[in-house]
Design a protein around this nucleic acid. Structure first.
Lengths: 356, 356
DNA sequence: CGACTTGCCGAAACCGGTTTCGGATCTCAC
DNA sequence: GTGAGATCCGAAACCGGTTTCGGCAAGTCG
């Protein structure tokens, strides 16, 4: 057992075990230790093993910024937040960060976070972070169509991973939740309850997910043998205000829907309000389903039936994928998806009997 | 004008301007350039100026991890989030991070973020980050009484800055919002509306702010010439559930309060629910005031009157203070406070006329 | 049995900075 | 005119790693 386990204070920076200590302890040279640690094939298996064993006996880990000066890489992942997105990502951010951090930490990496106000600012932030070697690759949350970040990083040949999918897959890895499956399932759920006129409130059309979820909804309608009425589909609601507005439009149609599927929970909560304004009881007079699993949904009245996304796991997977990408693994093996979890709460019910 | 402004891509890591380039361009040696950049007094004023001018002509900035290998410092700030806090800090996190990042960026620093599940894990995270030189100092959000993080960092002699205040100020710098002033002001506001029986729902007692805000409330009551009734004060409500519970207790007293001041917005929203359950209309039958300025408050019915905290500014100030602390400025000049902004919305009204 | 690989490791240069040490020049008093 | 300081900068070592290059010993082949 190592006895200096207790004194891991600041002074630790001084009596940190270095590669020279390793070399001395093993009777080898620095270069051999280094190449052994990095798995070079010109070091014998036996020596590699001996070095590795000594490494975790002395709990030696190369200083990332010491390696960086030669290799340019610091074992850190970059995350650049865009402020205008914040309203939307607010509920997820904490868990998402926790996941990212956990995924990075598991491999001995760290997470560098920056924020930017404008898009131009964001691009500049990427460049600075890269130039100063503060990040070896980037996590890009909220994939959007024809993403400027993707363009930048691709042409700069810098590794990145998307949260969300992208049309052009070349050299592009991602993790995503199958929102389209959720939307399809939502329709099936409602159809099973007897609903025939089902409205759909989509999210921001600039985001990649919007197209997918909408397609999922349409597919669900087809699967259920229901007609798709363009008049019952509205785009671009990501806040509860926008959701309320959209729901008002839907509920004021001549033949209003008996159920509304929302691509975003916030919009669904807005739909609650629109329904209440019209004297409709959610879950009885009109069914509402959301997607995201925001905590506010659980406390709404009635609790919102939705598809919950595990943002912690998403973060973990994203970090892991990005690290493997940076290490050079084949992009084609680095795309993952997961399913949203159906949370059946009180906001859906049997279709009200017709009484035109 | 520099012509390679367009090619700031990844290759930039190669044609980055180094200290040797600087030395060549100036006809000096690396050591002179280095000492000039760092303001050593054995370099003449004239030379320092010449070097600095060339530095921003070539836009030279020393590579932080190259300096780190000798100095041990990487110009990066550490932030360790504790997961169990997340529910509470969720609404603020995005803006807080944006502020921290902006404050760091303004000085050419970066932000390293980590998350931890347990407290033991958190301590370990601090140590790892320190040992690997991933952070030169830490921002500690949510100051708590007898903070274990403070103990650790203090004995390790690592710089840190608190968001919130601490009893023991020695070598300890902080930024804080004067919550006690807000609470005092809230009482004055209500007293001016004729309220005499005012309830108080405090936040988590382990947090430093709870003591302060409570004291502010008490002071406000005294200032208004009102008696402080311990039966109308409840501790430890940080969620809307806990707030509802506390408000129920208050509203079910023999002589219930006509107004309730909450140390935390979430609790105030819970109070809304408790009031509604009892057929009371918030803003008419009972006044409610909160603190924090969460966005949900603005959309509540009626919109919550509260004291808004600017978490972006807080983050900015915290970064700035920490950086100056790391640079060695006198701690006594590095403590700042700011005021919460009163947001008068619809949740308060004149005290109902007595009708016992 | 000698030449040619091959496997394995050491020596030394290098990365981009910082820091110690010492030496050249200049000033000034005596 | 000279010795003592003071001023200012260069030379070189150093930090903790990586990488290139070359050499030695063992194995292979004709």
């Amino acid at each position: 057992m190592d006895k200096n386990l207790g004194t891991i204070a600041a002074g630790d920076r001084r009596n940190r075990v270095t590669i020279s200590d390793m070399a001395d302890a093993l009777g080898l040279t620095k270069s051999t230790v280094s190449r052994a640690m990095n798995g070079y094939s010109d070091i014998s298996e036996a020596t590699q093993l001996r070095v590795r064993r000594m490494a975790d006996k002395l709990s030696y880990q190369p200083l990332s910024h010491a390696q960086a000066i030669k290799t340019g890489r610091t074992r850190s992942l970059g995350l650049v937040l865009k402020l205008s997105d914040h309203d939307a990502q607010r509920p997820f951010l904490a868990e998402f960060l926790a996941g990212l951090s956990a995924g990075a930490h598991a491999e001995g990496w760290t997470l560098t976070v920056a924020a930017s106000d404008s898009e131009a600012d964001m691009i500049q932030t990427f460049r600075t972070l890269l130039r100063d070697g503060k990040a070896d690759g980037f996590i890009l949350p909220r994939a959007i169509c024809d993403d400027p970040r993707v363009r930048l990083l691709r042409e700069a040949d810098v590794p990145f991973v998307l949260f969300g999918r992208q049309d052009d897959d070349t050299d592009c890895v991602w993790f995503d939740i199958l929102g389209e499956d959720a939307m399809r399932d939502a329709v099936a759920h409602l159809a099973a309850l007897g609903h025939k006129r089902i409205g759909y409130i989509n999210g921001g059309t600039q985001y990649a997910y919007a197209t997918l979820r909408k397609a999922g909804f349409v597919q669900g309608m087809r699967d259920a043998g229901l007609g798709v009425d363009p008049d019952l589909m509205i785009e671009g609601a990501v806040t509860s205000i926008e959701g309320a507005q959209a729901a008002r439009t839907l509920l004021d149609r001549k033949t209003p829907p008996t159920a509304i599927v929302c691509a975003v929970d916030f919009a669904a909560l807005g739909a609650y309000q629109a329904a209440t304004e019209r004297g409709l009881v959610v879950g009885r007079d009109v069914s509402v389903m959301g997607y995201d699993g925001i905590p506010e949904g659980a406390h709404a009245d009635p609790p919102l039936t939705t598809y919950a996304v595990d943002n912690r796991v998403a973060g973990e997977r994203l970090s892991n994928i990005l690290i493997r990408r940076i290490r050079g693994e084949d992009p084609d093996t680095l795309r993952e998806t997961a399913l949203a979890r159906f949370v059946d709460r009180g906001s859906t019910g049997p279709a009200p009997t017709e009484q035109t």
